[in-house]
């Protein structure tokens, strides 16, 4: 009996790896907030992958492996020490309850024609995404933008699957909360959000205070 393990050639490895360049770049851009730095991060990620291609087990998930290299590089090299370690205190740290938001309010937050957030709130969503703590942002981006499974995201971020689920949940809730508040202040939604149930005891998110706190101490 002859057993032969299939191992892609170097060229095939390179082609497959570079196929993830856009996805890596999308995530790197959100992490670095700088196009040139993001490109450097992607390049270093792929060069490390090439250098260590023999350590990749064929048949396993290359995308997940590449994102793991990227996130490790980001944390160990690119992230400015301390500045990105946003931790929340005050109202934002509490688990966000599934407070009462009417179907009408939720409908008003969406674009009626496209399956996306209302274009009036798009800029707010972008800002809210940037303000998410880095760990939450990464989890939300991998799951929502890159369609990772929880298992893949857990492998890419080197964290347990339960932690991925919790970070995605909390990240999304924070985004929703900001959108509801902004929708209300822009007059897009009516003032019924967070009006009943558990949400009663929850102080409303104050985006301005949130941003001031976030950027305090940033040079």
């Amino acid at each position: 009996m002859f057993l032969r393990s299939s191992r892609p050639s170097d060229d095939a490895f390179l082609d497959e790896a570079i196929g993830y360049a856009d996805a890596l770049n999308g995530v790197a851009r959100r992490m670095c907030r700088d196009a040139a730095l993001a490109e450097d991060l992607v390049q270093e990620t792929l060069l490390k992958a090439i250098k260590g291609r023999d350590q990749f087990a064929p048949g396993t998930n290359l995308r997940s492996w590449l994102f793991r290299i990227l996130t490790n590089l980001w944390v160990s090299r690119y992230r400015r020490a301390g500045l990105e370690r946003a931790t929340f205190d005050g109202p934002e740290v509490d688990p966000i309850s599934d407070g009462w938001v009417s179907a009408e309010t939720m409908r008003q937050l969406r674009d009626p024609e496209q399956v996306a957030i209302s274009s009036l709130l798009r800029a707010e969503l972008e800002r809210a995404l940037e303000l998410l703590p880095e760990d939450f942002r990464m989890a939300v981006i991998l799951i929502d933008a890159q369609d990772f499974t929880y298992e893949e995201a857990a492998s890419a971020l080197s964290i347990p699957m339960g932690t991925v689920m919790s970070r995605v949940h909390r990240g999304r809730k924070m985004l929703q909360k900001v959108l509801i508040e902004q929708g209300r202040s822009l007059g897009i939604t009516k003032a019924d959000g967070h009006a009943a149930g558990d949400a009663k005891s929850e102080p409303p998110a104050n985006l301005q205070a949130f941003r001031e706190k976030k950027f305090r101490g940033t040079p």
Binding site: R29, R30, A116, I141, D144, A145
Partner: peptide, 26 residues
């Protein structure tokens, strides 16, 4: 359930928008 239908629609809209925002082809 109309309420949960809207909840799901908002969740999907949020996912789609995050995807759109993080799309950065080289």
């Amino acid at each position: 359930c109309a309420h949960c239908r809207e909840r799901v629609a908002l969740g999907r809209a949020l996912k789609a928008s995050v995807r759109e925002l993080t799309c950065a082809p080289m």
